[in-house]
Simulated assay, not measured.
Amino acid sequence: MGTLTDMLRPCVSSVSHCKVCSAKAPLYGVTDFNKNCEEAKGVYLPLTGVPVHYYQCSRCGLVFTIAFDHWSTSDFREHIYNERYVTVDPDYVEARPAANADMIADFIKKSQSLACLDYGGGNGTLTTLLRHRGIDAHSWDPVANHEDACPTGSFDFVSAFEVLEHTPEPLATVEQALGFLREGGVMLFSTNVFDHVPTRSMDHWYIAPRNGHITIHTKPSLQALFARFGYRVHHFNDNFHLALKSVPAWLS
Rank of each mutant, 00 (worst) to 15 (best):
E38R: 14
W140L: 12
T218Q: 08
H70K: 14
G120S: 09
G42D: 13
F226Q: 02
R200C: 13
W140C: 08
T167Q: 10
V93N: 00
A105F: 15
G153M: 02
L62R: 02
N34P: 02
S246Y: 00
G212M: 12
D69K: 11
R210F: 12
V52Y: 01
R200G: 06
V50Y: 11
D91W: 01
V193N: 00
H17C: 10
F229S: 04
Y44I: 10
F76W: 15
G212R: 02
S13Y: 11
E83N: 11
Y231L: 11
A23W: 10
V12S: 04
F180S: 09
R84W: 04
D102A: 14
I135C: 09
E165Q: 11
L126E: 06
M7W: 06
S111R: 15
F194M: 11
S201H: 15
V30C: 15
N192I: 13
L181K: 01
T5R: 13
I104H: 02
S14Q: 11
D203T: 13
S16G: 12
L126P: 07
F64C: 08
S221F: 02
I135P: 05
F161E: 00
D75H: 10
A149H: 07
V15A: 02
A137C: 14
G2T: 07
P46Y: 05
C57D: 05
I135S: 03
T125A: 14
V15S: 09
V174H: 01
I135A: 06
S72Y: 02
S13W: 01
Y85P: 00
G185M: 06
I135Y: 06
C60H: 05
N36H: 09
L244E: 07
P209K: 05
V20R: 06
R9Y: 08
Y231S: 05
C11K: 08
A105L: 12
F33M: 10
L117C: 11
S201M: 12
R9N: 08
F189W: 02
L117F: 10
A172W: 00
G29Y: 05
P170A: 14
P168V: 10
F155I: 01
K41H: 13
M1K: 12
S221V: 09
E183M: 04
R96E: 13
I80W: 03
H79V: 00
T167K: 05
V63L: 12
L251E: 03
Q56L: 01
G121H: 02
L114A: 01
